[in-house]
């Protein structure tokens, strides 16, 4: 079974079908599948975004939400009247509308190079969307894509720990780290996630640290 056959991403809590299609296409450009391994789509980043939008973050549960709202300067950070849920909903439908007007189809159905060009335009704020800055949406999308690809698989992305394998990041530490911290030998191990320990896939020692399976490498 390859990653894309594993459809744990088939259920979505917040996102609508056209949004899922938009995001699957978009995030795959941001972190593409290549010889190094799966890209953001197969890593479950869209599932990650869906779960985040359905979480308290999606409605800015612990963020200041009071008005009045002004765009502010880049230094002043997030100033939108919209919560992340609303940003995704409004931006995707407006970008799809833009694509339909300009090219006759929604974003997800355009050719790859056209999608790529559009993403670059969004990033530079070159597409005038009716309700929000396209750069503002792009920056949020990129931030969430990066998070989804590299956060613990607990959150629905980084499926099969592909992000961590890409980096050579072993995930949770072991009790050996206190000794290894002075070592100049590169340490490589199969990554272990919070999810692995919570679901009992990886056992822990008396201190609560997981055991690592060391990857032998030719040096």
């Amino acid at each position: 079974m390859t990653l894309s056959d594993n459809l744990i991403g088939a259920s979505y809590v917040y996102l609508l079908e056209p949004e899922v299609r938009f995001l699957e296409a978009a995030v795959e450009h941001l972190i593409p599948t290549d010889e190094l391994g799966p890209g953001a789509r197969d890593a479950g980043v869209v599932v990650y975004i869906d779960r985040q939008l359905a979480s308290s973050w999606g409605v800015h549960g612990r963020m200041y939400r009071g008005g009045p709202w002004m765009e502010g300067t880049p230094q002043q950070g997030y100033q939108s009247r919209f919560t992340p849920q609303e940003v995704y909903r409004i931006a995707i439908s407006e970008i799809d509308q833009h694509c339909k007007t300009a090219f006759g189809r929604p974003f997800a159905q355009l050719a790859g190079d056209r999608q790529l060009r559009l993403l670059k335009q969004l990033e530079k704020d070159e597409i005038a969307l009716p309700s929000l800055s396209s750069k503002f949406f792009f920056d949020l999308l990129w931030r969430n894509t990066d998070e989804g690809y590299f956060a613990d698989p607990l959150y629905g992305g980084n499926r099969d720990k592909v992000g961590w394998k890409l980096l050579g990041f072993p995930g949770l530490p072991t009790s050996e780290y206190r000794r290894l911290v002075t070592s100049s030998e590169p340490y490589h191990a199969e990554p272990v996630s919070v999810l692995d320990v919570q679901t009992g896939k990886v056992p822990v020692d008396a201190e609560g640290f997981p055991k690592h399976v060391i990857i032998k490498r030719d040096r």
Partner: peptide
């Protein structure tokens, strides 16, 4: 407690 504290997000 471990492992929950090892959650960067």
């Amino acid at each position: 407690y471990k492992p929950n504290v090892y959650d960067e997000l």
